[in-house]
Design a binder for these strands. Structure first.
Lengths: 261, 261
DNA sequence: CGACGATTTGAAATCAGTCAAGAGCAGTGG
DNA sequence: CCACTGCTCTTGACTGATTTCAAATCGTCG
């Protein structure tokens, strides 16, 4: 069984977190053991379940072991903005835990297996083992970088470019997590949710996707996305992977540059 | 002399950083002394000077001692998005220093006195003194919270609300730094720069400000802004100060709620 | 005074939103 | 097996907020 069950916690339950950290940082055997030994409780979450609600005072951090979740917040007019999407290995509310109270919501998109780790346990580890602390801090800063890129996306790119950009981001992040390929993956969001991430309406997202389809840049039915020509889509989306701070991002962006001239 | 000069570094040069951290965290005498003793070099910067350029590999973090700076990034179409504005006491590129390379630009708005602190010195302190580490980490997360709110602002509020929101944010942050009052302050940005922060055009910012003026919500000429009725402006701007994580933010938002019913 | 940048205003164009209705598809229960 | 329900996706016609393009005004500084 690849998906852990709440009834059978094991020493490898937290491995997705470790794998993700090891992509960017080197941790010695003791560091790794300490991370895997973090106390936690496992929970299954249903689709659309709120993990953290704005204003909550979270005492635990939520680590995703499978499935997808988003961060979002409502404006006073009822409109919602999605800030980021999270997947296996992401600690999804270290931000809220450390800030004292939640300034945004965290909600599942799909069914999720999650490990809830007491925030003090994480902090103790972060400051008793600097390599771990740096890795975790770094990860929260990568989140920041993605927030910034989304702001740029929403503020300064038109619908076509904006949508293409997001499809490219998903492609690389899903691939990096072993959940898809750069050119083909399952999108875990409805067009409504995509609209909330893009700062558009669902109607306009639909038309924009149709446009990209008609141009022959992507194919998609239901949630399955196939990127016919990644380099061109990246060009349309003004996509430069470096903001993702993936290990191979610089290399990727160079490849794309070479491919598109 | 309140503004330090490069030619006279003293043990209190870094005090603005300490003051800002002490607003949210308690640090004992040794922590405080260690922070003030951080090695640094002082530099005057001119208006519009780039502090960090996208792709740089910064080896130092830049602490603002006076003046204003912004973080921003250009889209491929030449449009620019401003992510945040920074002022006295802010460490303006801890993000970029820790991420390994800069994924965005940092640029002064005004003349600036800055202290450049070697990144390793900060990290050593952060992990040898957990109270300092938590305070610094926390600060980078507050930056994140502001990034998120700006994304919401740009993505889901109309021009009027969006502009009002930003004027409210500036009011509180400038006041918190002792650089103005909640109802009157000097805005350090041109309408062009404001437009880049709001995801609008300078023309539309101009019209929107005129609208707020005509409604009697604000008065402004040149860079000086007077907020005639903060509670109403906050309502128009859908502004809830909690995302700023100022010590008195919760209290503030309650006061506003009470005032506007 | 002249130059330059910032602000202001107008008119026309356009991108994206709104409103509304229909189609496709999955799950549920009779 | 089929009708029903609900949700997502799709499309059309219309509206409107914001952009674009252009030009005039204002203020500051040399």
């Amino acid at each position: 069984m690849s998906s852990p069950s709440p009834s059978s916690p094991s020493s490898l339950t937290l491995k997705p977190m470790l794998d993700k950290l090891l992509m960017r940082h080197s941790l010695d055997a003791e560091d790794q053991a300490a991370l895997l030994a973090l106390p936690h409780t496992l929970r299954h979450l249903r689709p659309q379940e709120l993990v953290v609600r704005e204003d909550d005072v979270p005492k635990t951090a939520c680590l995703l072991l499978s499935g997808f979740a988003i961060r979002h917040k409502f404006a006073g007019n009822g409109a919602r903005q999605v800030f980021s999407i999270h997947l296996k290995g992401d600690i999804v509310d270290l931000h809220n835990s450390l800030l004292g109270f939640a300034d945004h919501n965290v909600q599942t998109l799909t069914r999720v297996d999650a490990a809830f780790i007491p925030a003090p346990a994480i902090m103790d580890l972060a400051f008793s083992r600097p390599a771990i602390g740096k890795a975790l801090w770094h990860d929260t800063l990568v989140d920041s970088s993605i927030f910034r890129e989304w702001t740029l996306n929403v503020g300064r790119r038109d619908a076509r470019s904006r949508t293409a950009h997001m499809l490219c981001e998903f492609a690389l992040r899903l691939e990096a997590a072993g959940l898809g390929e750069q050119n083909e993956y399952e999108l875990p969001m409805t067009q409504d949710q995509l609209a909330d991430a893009l700062g558009l309406t669902n109607v306009h997202v639909n038309r924009t996707l149709k446009g990209l389809r008609d141009e022959g840049l992507i194919e998609h039915n239901k949630r399955s996305v196939r990127i016919v020509d990644f380099a061109t889509l990246a060009q349309v989306g003004d996509f430069d992977a470096r903001y993702l701070h993936l290990v191979n991002a610089r290399q990727l962006s160079k490849e794309i540059e070479r491919a598109t001239g």
